[in-house]
Computed example of a mutant assay.
Amino acid sequence: MARPTVGKSKADRAAYLVLGMHRSGTSAVTQLLALAGAELPQNVMPGDEHNAKGYFEPWKIAVFNDERLRAGGGAWDDVFAFPYQPLPGPQEAEWAAKALALYDAEFGEAWFPLLKDPRVSVLAPLWRATLKARNMPARAVMPVRHPLSVAKSLMRRDGFPVEKSVLLWVTYMLAAELYSRDMPRAFVGYDRLLADWRAEVTRIEAAHGAALPRLSERAASEIDAFLTTDLRHDAGGGDLSAIPLVGPLAQRAYDWFEAAARDAPRDSEALDQVAVEVADMKAQMGVFVSPAARALDLARADLVEARGLRAMDLRYISTLEGQVARLRSELSTIEAMVDTMIAGR
């Protein structure tokens, strides 16, 4: 597989940002880019029963992103985490300094740093400022997967109702698209990536105006071995329009992204209108949903930390587990109330 030569001048440097929704194929795209020469951070999350081949996610950056989302009153699964809301001046500057220090620790002098954490999509202004501080241009790759396939995966892993998962997909994809409009970017159909990754790489390189750093014959063989059909855990789509309230706007958003993944003409105004409708929902329901999502995320973080301390009093861990269960129940009550509000519209 003959590849163009990638130079070593400063003009050749660029960060690769994998943007988009959780469970949408971001791990598969990240491994492809890593095998093709982009550089993963120092600390990468291993695989588990939900993703045996690995997440390729910078776990220290993921923890930082969770903390930043909570500081702003949200969480990774807050359906109203978009648009990005800066904190008051001194606080925002402090978080920016932390992000820069973390970037330096994780990537050092990397020529093609590869940053994959779906939370970066909704925190993109913070991370883009970090890259700018290091004079690092950015290129984006956004996997596109049907929202109902994502919802099936989140139902199995997190127990989320389909309405929440679909709206969460809309939120992350709107953020990924808006915050990447001024950079080279490629939209990649997840199913097409698994079927013919070479064709998708050709599209990525054309969209970026640059070859992937080091896509050799050996790398191609490793990608062949990695991108297998067993990565498609939740295949198929479904009727988005049948989902109350969020379904029709999700369908319009998915139509846009699916067209983008086929290089078909599309108008960003269509997504801007979806964003207006989500903002309207946020104005009506955000005061109920976002604080509960933040409280649950904080309880989960405390529980993970407690489980990691071997000498921790088991009674305290039991208390935290009870707190998580209570918050889950409260969030379910709030979601039921929101469903009642929707039904009454």
Rank of each mutant, 00 (worst) to 15 (best):
P125I: 05
A195S: 13
G236P: 06
E200Q: 11
T171H: 10
H146W: 09
K164P: 04
E200P: 03
A210W: 13
F187M: 09
S221Q: 15
P125K: 05
E163D: 13
R128W: 08
K164T: 11
D224R: 12
V166G: 06
L131C: 06
L227M: 03
L215A: 08
D182R: 02
W127P: 14
L126R: 14
S241Y: 08
L167E: 11
F160Q: 15
V162T: 13
A235P: 07
D230E: 14
L227W: 00
D191R: 00
D239R: 10
A206F: 02
K132E: 13
A211K: 12
F160I: 07
S241A: 15
S221F: 09
E222C: 09
R119G: 04
L215V: 03
R185T: 01
E205I: 09
V170T: 00
R128A: 08
S221I: 12
L126H: 13
D224M: 06
L148M: 05
R119N: 07
A140S: 10
T202K: 13
V144M: 03
Y172R: 02
E205D: 07
I223E: 09
E222G: 04
M173T: 14
S165L: 14
M173L: 10
V150Q: 02
E163C: 04
D182I: 08
V166R: 01
L131V: 06
L167Q: 14
T202M: 11
A242C: 07
E200M: 07
R203N: 03
A211Q: 12
A175K: 12
T171C: 15
A225Y: 05
A133H: 13
G189V: 00
A176I: 04
K116M: 02
L193R: 08
R185Y: 00
S121V: 05
L178P: 00
L154E: 12
A186V: 01
